[in-house]
């Protein structure tokens, strides 16, 4: 049996189904992300696990113990909130020590643990500051330290990085992963940012309209999105009409009434000279992304997005005619969306 298990978890608000029959099994030490657009039920799911939201039906099992209806204070889980949720009237050290004081641990023990965990999140020199004197990133580290210090069986992160600016967000992503692997704690993170989910999770759970639509390792999720929605939400995707050929391989069809939708990632398309390749097109616009060039190319199959590495050579200009080519085995067949987003 998995360490943290959700069995047919449901949450209804009146006539609205916020979370529908969610099943999930998380192994000990695993880092799992709940990914989805806002309103998909991911935060509600996390809040049910934390105990802040009542469960309508289904069960939550932690290490074999049924905690479905346990009080939040008796679950002993570590929770990190989007707003940091620090106690404004307490110093960093007191914020972190709060959970240990609730557990009535001896003061010397508390001091030792607080020092230790503040070193882990690299805030040892800010112990006597108040939250208002810290930057956003530092506050998030305090929140993390406060959740970790009670040595919870599971760490729950609710959009932990969405209040940080882009540079800091990337830095904190890796920081969270570093701390998580150092402590070896089972972690469930809620996020709407696919890059965040892909970069630091062991597995990603995609949710849409209250349902889990795909659970996979980040690489597999990106390379084999199951539905149209997922291929679009996780990374960028070119959607092409297609059919299966005699060998059962997907092939792009030029007719509009093709029975399948195929997905092709922008970086999987090669740009060749005009006339070569499988498809002809003209570069409509060009965007510079630093490490990459992004081209929007008009083709008989519609506008396609192509990403090329910035390898130092001159980029193609707008208005240039090009040939497009790809490896047919990189085409993915998408299932129709079973839920509308």
């Amino acid at each position: 049996m998995a360490f943290l298990q959700l069995d047919n978890l449901c949450k209804r608000y009146g006539a609205i189904d916020a979370v529908v029959a969610t099943n999930l099994a998380i192994e000990q030490g695993e880092f799992v992300s709940l990914l989805g657009p806002s309103g998909c039920g991911k935060t509600t799911t996390l809040q049910m696990i934390a105990g802040f939201v009542d469960v309508s039906s289904g069960r939550i099992l932690l290490d074999g113990r049924d905690i479905t209806h346990a009080k939040p204070s008796s679950r002993g889980l570590g929770v990190v909130f989007q707003s940091y949720a620090l106690f404004p009237h307490m110093t960093v050290a007191d914020n972190v020590a709060f959970g240990l004081r609730m557990r009535k641990q001896p003061e010397a023990e508390i001091r030792r643990k607080v020092t230790e965990v503040l070193a882990l999140v690299r805030l040892d020199r800010h112990a006597q500051r108040y939250p208002r004197e810290l930057s956003g990133g530092q506050r998030q580290r305090v929140a993390l330290a406060r959740a970790l210090v009670i040595e919870p069986p599971v760490l729950l992160l609710d959009e932990p990085l969405s209040n940080l600016d882009a540079n800091l967000r990337e830095e904190m992503q890796f920081e969270i992963r570093r701390i998580q692997s150092e402590v070896g704690i089972t972690t469930l993170m809620v996020t709407h940012d696919q890059a965040e989910a892909l970069s630091i999770s062991d597995r990603v759970v995609v949710m849409q309209a209250g349902r889990v639509t795909q659970v996979d390792e980040p690489y597999r999720l990106y390379e084999h999105p199951r539905t149209r929605f997922i291929s679009d939400f996780v990374g960028k995707a070119n959607l092409l009409p297609g059919e299966l050929d005699g060998a059962g391989l997907p092939q792009v069809q030029h007719s509009r009434d093709a029975s399948l939708t195929l997905s092709l990632r922008p970086e999987k398309i090669d740009l060749l000279d005009n006339g070569a390749g499988r498809l002809q097109g003209r570069i409509l616009t060009r965007y510079f992304l630093g490490s990459q060039w992004l081209y929007r190319i008009g083709t008989p199959l519609g506008e396609l997005t192509v990403v090329r590495r910035n390898d130092g050579s001159a980029p193609l200009g707008e208005g240039v005619d090009v040939g497009l080519d790809w490896q047919p085995e990189l085409l993915r067949v998408l299932a129709a969306d079973e839920v509308s987003a």
Binding site: A50, G51, F52, K71, P72, S73, S74, R75, G76, L77, G78, V79, F81, Q82, S83, A85, L86, F87, P88, F98, G99, M102, R103, A143, R146, A147, I150
Partner: peptide, 21 residues
């Protein structure tokens, strides 16, 4: 900030402690 109260609860604070602290 309601989440600060939820944080305190998850850290093991009882209703009364939550109010007082």
């Amino acid at each position: 900030d309601r989440s600060a109260e939820q944080a305190a609860e998850s850290l093991g604070a009882s209703r009364f402690t939550l109010f007082r602290k």
